[in-house]
Amino acid sequence: MSEEGRTKKFMFVNRKAPYGTVYALESLEVVLITAAFDQDVSLAFLDDGVYQLRKGQQTKGIETKNFSPTYRALEGYDIEKLYVEKEAIEARGLSEEDLLVEVTVLDRQALGKLMDEQDVLLSF
């Protein structure tokens, strides 16, 4: 995956809530696969994407797999850069304590700057 042996910066931009569409799960699966290629991978959660990290998800009643525990496995895959949009969590009445993993909270402009620094953006 890396040309000339250089590590590339990959950012996954997640903007969808977890169960209404398949975007969130698809993104997570691609993240896990990408982890095998030793690239510089980060995840950003914007808009409804922040709901993916909400604590306390119970999916039994909708007969759908609860993949939220898998975000806690990312650290073991050496994926430790998780960024969350400040405006998005505030608009949804959430704070960092409501999220199931440790994240860095950034405002929209700071996130935009990080996105600008990437080699590859994967939009979900």
Binding site: L32, A36, F67, P69, T70, A73, G76, Y77
Partner: peptide, 9 residues
């Protein structure tokens, strides 16, 4: 704990 089978590494 994590709802996935881990990669070998």
């Amino acid at each position: 704990e994590y709802q996935i089978a881990p990669a070998v590494r």
